[in-house]
Design a protein around this nucleic acid. Structure first.
Lengths: 213, 213
DNA sequence: TAGATTGTTAATCGATTAACAATC
DNA sequence: TAGATTGTTAATCGATTAACAATC
């Protein structure tokens, strides 16, 4: 089977669960060498059948009668999610949220490397976050072009989110991870993920007041 | 039709879109009094039919031949999402992420009121964030009980997330909004929403590398 | 009346679950 | 061999889309 055949047509919700599986698996201590579909499903909060169906889309993951091998699982999921090779990122906007993201532990575990941090505030320029010096936002496009950065993270105030996004895309960024409350838009050939806090809290409010009781 | 009949059985994904509709509608200037399903769907990035089907689940929203009334839409969506009455919240963990959340603009717009902020770090206790003094985490349970807080936000390091969660639930919190990388679990009758950054970036990586090109 | 628009049903599509064969 | 486990198909369930009637 070709790589294409393996990676095409994975259902959208299956991809999200792949991420959750992988996220859980990497926290397991090294001594845990194998895990069953029911153990894992129980922890994630889904049914074992769904997990097996998910893995089935990848073709021939495990063996009947045997549990899944944890190392292999991690390897295969990383591969599907394209996390095997390092990917460089830049971040724009050094407020509390920007600093929280820049300091986020999970990145290097998944081969994601923050290369540049940018802000307009002269007081912040030069500040070191994780050994990276904050640069002037004017340098953003040059930096992206020079280092061929493909992933841009936006944690600016909402007024500047779309402009920063446009600049990133213009300089060659192909994926935007947006934490500003503004829903930014991108042209064809670029992907964007708007992490909208409001949606989260409204959904929680609905579940608290309408689902419960 | 009873309230129950109106609010039961709204599809899960429809609720998430309700949040996105409302989030967009409140940003409209006051002069915009009505909006059509196609205008709104275009901005949100879905099909008009889906939007009308969503509103149909609420029963008799608009009128054939006329656009939707923005004020009424906001009123009705707020009602469904249970955002009409003020809801009190507490937050535990005053790192960068905690401060970013505490300073988040969107809350009061949706009647969500942050009442208490807590941390273990003596250097942070007493610090004022949005006119709220950071208190010692030891005071958390008493505060929740005294003020009958129903919503708890967790932005502590992952080691303490589950303990803080347990303490919140024990004191009466019914909804947990968790930003720590640890997937916390809650007993029956409590809802939890784990906002997992890793899932977001892995999904973005998949889309960048597997969907594009 | 003609055009624009939403309401509502039915058809389609996609995701989840059940069932059981295959394998260890 | 018996028990545990995954692989894989088919059935079910839920979500999206199409079509058009109803209304302004």
């Amino acid at each position: 089977m070709s790589e294409d055949a393996i990676f095409k047509n994975i259902p959208q919700f299956t991809v999200l669960r792949f991420a959750r599986y992988l996220n859980f698996l990497v926290t397991l201590p090294d001594v845990v060498e194998e895990i069953s579909s029911s153990e894992m499903a129980g922890i994630i909060g889904i049914k074992p059948t769904q997990l097996r169906q998910d893995f089935f889309t990848l073709g021939g993951f495990g063996r009947q009668g045997k549990k899944y091998n944890v190392r292999f699982l991690i390897h295969r999921l990383s591969e599907v999610l394209a996390l095997q090779k390092p990917q460089d990122m830049v971040l724009a906007g050094v407020g509390h949220l920007g600093q929280a993201i820049a300091n986020y532990q999970g990145f290097e575990r998944f081969n994601l490397v923050l290369r540049g941090i940018f802000d307009v505030n002269p007081k912040l320029i030069g500040l070191k976050i994780r050994d990276i010096q904050v640069q002037d936002l004017d340098e953003l496009q040059g930096f992206i072009r020079q280092h061929k950065i493909q992933i841009g993270i936006i944690s600016t105030p909402h007024q500047s989110a779309q402009i920063v996004c446009d600049n990133m895309v213009d300089a060659g960024v192909k994926a935007i991870w947006n934490f500003s409350p503004e829903n930014v838009t991108v042209p064809e050939g670029v992907v964007v993920q708007n992490e909208n806090l409001s949606v989260g809290i409204m959904n929680l409010s609905y579940r608290l007041n309408r689902e419960l009781a």
